[in-house]
Simulated assay, not measured.
Amino acid sequence: MNDLIEIYRRIEYLRNNGVKMKEIADYINMAPSVLSALYSSVLPTYVTSLKQGRSEEDSLNLALSQVNNVSKKRLLGNLAAIKDLLFSLEPAGEANRANPFMEMMNVEMLRSVQEVYNYSGAYLSYSLSSSNGCLKVEPYLIESSEDNTYVKVTHMSAYNTTHRGVALFNNHQNGYIIFNEREAPQMALFNIYLQLPMYDFPSFLKGLYLSLDYNRNPIARRILFVKQSDSTDMEEFLEMKGELVPLDELTPLQKKYYDYTCQSGDFIRTCMIPSPQLNENDLEREKKMLAI
């Protein structure tokens, strides 16, 4: 009955790599409810019972007693066929298996679709403008993709240019938004790290973003997302506009956002120092230049 343990590990592998339980059930010609009972109850109990020193027979009997829709006779009679089918099923994007990081990203994108309901909708973001001391206001739309394979993010800049990217949400703690700020084939990634509050449907999200300034030097700044609507209608979103708001034109509410995101301690800048030596003295020169 060692096949049962291999089957359990294989189902776990497929699920962790984005294959849905219904897809697995259809592929091995098993009712989804039976596969669910097998994976969530029977096989875990069987493995635990073996570790406790019970025999394979007693462990299986105990595991099957926990459910009422899995037949011992049918399970054992089809064990070899189930195992062969499971091991012939491979997750999508198999080309990424040579790159564990990209494989992990694909899995996390699928998981994030299950979390996006908590954060989907239209937002206005508030941060410091790179070009001046204005408050930068930019719309964002967070939603599931049309095929429910990733979380899609649309960003409209203060200059009314739009970008498309992806978001990852992890265990209601961390969120990441990633997109390319330049036209292809140029690469200029814009990355936002969000702290996710420990309650449902938050009215705002806060975090940090890393991007490139106009001289293509990296900058990190504080950013605040304030939810405007639960709607993910694109036409409604496109009616929203980004803007740069000078300090003397801020509303009382915008002034609170400005004070949170635009103070001297709320951003980090770097710059490239032309130097034939490129030694430790250049580090000091850089800090002096940034202080000007």
Score class of each variant (00 low, 15 high):
Met1Cys: 06
Asp3Glu: 10
Leu4Arg: 07
Ile7Asn: 01
Ile24Thr: 00
Asn29Pro: 00
Met30Ile: 03
Val42Met: 09
Leu43Lys: 07
Tyr46Lys: 03
Glu57Asp: 11
Ser59Glu: 02
Leu60Cys: 02
Asn69Gln: 07
Lys72Cys: 09
Lys73Trp: 02
Leu75Tyr: 10
Leu76Ala: 05
Gly77Arg: 04
Ser88Cys: 11
Gly93Thr: 00
Ala98Glu: 15
Glu103Asn: 13
Glu103Asp: 12
Arg111Gln: 06
Ala122Arg: 04
Ala122Asn: 07
Leu128Ile: 08
Asn132Leu: 01
Glu138Phe: 10
Glu143Leu: 01
Ser145Tyr: 01
Val153Gly: 08
Thr161Val: 13
Thr161Ile: 15
Gly165Lys: 03
Phe169Tyr: 08
Phe169Val: 00
Asn171Met: 12
Phe179Pro: 01
Glu183Phe: 10
Gln186Cys: 11
Ala188Phe: 07
Pro202Glu: 03
Phe204Lys: 14
Lys206Leu: 04
Leu212Gln: 14
Ile219Leu: 14
Ala220Cys: 15
Ala220His: 05
Arg221Leu: 10
Arg222Ser: 14
Ile223Arg: 00
Leu224Gln: 06
Leu224Tyr: 03
Ser229Met: 05
Asp233Phe: 06
Phe237Gly: 00
Leu238Ala: 09
Glu239Val: 12
Leu244Arg: 09
Pro252Tyr: 05
Tyr260Asn: 15
Asp266Lys: 12
Phe267Lys: 09
Pro274Phe: 04
Leu278Phe: 10
Glu280Cys: 06
Asn281Gln: 10
Glu284Thr: 09
Lys287Leu: 14
